[in-house]
């Protein structure tokens, strides 16, 4: 009966649409379209193109030479290994945590708390995470003092590394693990218990299930999440900016320096060149992500 009414409404609907001219409806898309053009397309376009022009507005490829500057190359290298390292740690720890979460019922309180905490730490931490780590392993941090007083270990014997590149590793892992939980837990929860039942019924073992079914099915999701974590670390700015107010060890901090001072390394529009470089790398990573994710989605119907 329901479907009959549905069909009836559908017929009325299509009849009316044929009579009506579509022009006013198209106008309805204009405000959002204009907004996206001005605040998404235009800034992205400017960011991509500004590196390719001189201060006078003439087109040039000379600025791209900045990308071969040892300082810039070093920043890209630092950003890359920092992203890979923290993504790898985050992926492994996050996957383990996701696996543990399967022990709690879906929609239960434990899952809700971990979901909310993951969201906060993964996406809204920024400056506040930097504060947390200064309070923990800063020069006057809780763990720093504890190690000093109780064990006589001075973790800063070789200098205050927390305000330099190595100091970024722990805070980055701290937001990578929750992001892994957010992205990987749905895939893990999508593993069907029936597949395990089938394996056991056919005489297989639990280990065989994981080796022959579980891990092959989850591999694309794991890889996709790993790629997303790389992109996440690569584009992250706030935590690094709050931790190291002077240094420019990674690309986003180089962009800050380039934006706040007129000329960097005696070149023009370095910020634009760096933005271009970042976008290229992000595009590669996110394209890979989309490809792997498509394959992962096969098992998540």
């Amino acid at each position: 009966m329901t479907s009959a009414v549905h069909a009836g409404v559908g017929a009325v609907d299509s009849g009316r649409r044929r009579r009506r001219a579509p022009a006013p409806a198209v106008l309805g898309l204009l405000p959002f379209g204009a907004y996206v053009v001005v605040f998404l397309a235009l800034p992205t376009g400017i960011a991509l193109a500004s590196g390719l022009f001189t201060a006078d507005g003439a087109f040039t490829l000379d600025n791209l030479a900045a990308l071969t500057d040892p300082v810039i190359l070093g920043a890209f290298w630092n950003s890359t290994w920092l992203s890979f390292l923290t993504a790898a740690i985050g992926a492994v720890v996050g996957a383990a945590l996701s696996y543990a979460m399967l022990g709690f019922p879906e929609g239960g309180r434990a899952r809700a708390i971990v979901d909310a905490a993951s969201g906060v730490l993964a996406q809204f931490g920024g400056v506040m995470l930097a504060f947390a780590f200064i309070a923990t392993i800063g020069l006057q941090g809780v763990v720093t003092l504890l190690l000093q007083d109780a064990f006589g270990i001075d973790i800063f014997a070789d200098g205050a590394w927390i305000y330099e590149l190595p100091g970024l590793v722990l805070p980055y892992v701290y937001f990578q693990v929750p992001l892994m939980v957010i992205t990987f837990l749905p895939a893990l929860a999508g593993l069907k218990p029936q597949w395990l039942e089938a394996t056991l019924t056919l005489g297989g073992t639990r280990a065989a299930f994981w080796r022959k079914v579980g891990i092959p099915v989850l591999a694309p999701s794991f890889l996709a999440s790993f790629l997303l974590l790389i992109a996440n670390a690569f584009s992250s700015y706030a935590t690094a900016a709050a931790l190291s107010s002077q240094g420019s060890s990674i690309v986003p901090l180089q962009i800050r320096t380039a934006l706040t001072s007129e000329t960097v390394l005696g070149r023009e529009n370095v910020a634009g060149v760096l933005a271009l470089g970042m976008i290229v790398i992000m595009a590669v990573v996110m394209t890979l992500y989309a490809l792997v994710q498509r394959r992962a989605a096969r098992w998540q119907a």
């Binding site: 001005v38 800034p43 992205t44 960011a47 500004s50 584009s235 700015y237 934006l259 634009g272 992000m282």
Partner: peptide, 16 residues
């Protein structure tokens, strides 16, 4: 916007 780092967006937003 997930693929465009905020720091890159800022470079383009500055003139706007």
């Amino acid at each position: 916007p997930l693929s465009i780092p905020a720091i890159v967006l800022v470079v383009g937003l500055a003139p706007i």
